[in-house]
């Protein structure tokens, strides 16, 4: 697929090295990144392939791709695959999100 992800050689994206970089950084900066990475790890292979995951991310609309953080792109990619494969419907995902998190989910996410 030919879209913004195929970015090698583009000009104008600025500095690479973050301010104050000392060669190390935490693996995850936020709890939601840790949870999203884990969600990916336990669903890939079982519900979609490596290639399907990459392609789902590459199909992100270009402005979304360029402006959303890395693990948020993973959220888009995994949620889309789950719906495309009929494992959840857009209606039930939207309804579930609107209903808000349940207490048990807070405990599961480790930030109750």
């Amino acid at each position: 697929m030919n879209s913004v992800h195929d970015c090698g050689g583009f000009d104008g994206f600025g500095r690479v090295v973050p301010e104050g970089y000392d060669g190390s950084e935490p693996v995850f900066k936020h709890e939601w990144e840790r949870r999203m990475c884990a969600l990916f790890m336990v669903t890939i292979g079982a519900h979609y392939s490596d290639d399907e995951f990459r392609q789902s991310r590459e199909r992100l609309e270009p402005v979304t791709y360029l402006t959303r953080p890395y693990y948020e792109q993973w959220w888009f990619a995994v949620a889309r695959l789950m719906m495309e494969k009929g494992l959840m419907t857009p209606e039930e995902f939207g309804r579930h999100l609107a209903a808000g998190p349940t207490p048990s989910a807070d405990i599961l996410a480790g930030d109750a």
Binding site: R35, E61, W75, R80, M82, M83, E84, P90, L97, P101
Partner: peptide, 25 residues
């Protein structure tokens, strides 16, 4: 349909969106 749903909820806090996906699955 999947794209339309994702874009309609794209401005909800990401931590809530990740949590909802984990819960539903």
């Amino acid at each position: 349909e999947a794209d339309a749903l994702l874009m309609s909820i794209a401005d909800i806090e990401i931590s809530a969106r990740v949590k909802a996906l984990e819960e539903l699955l």
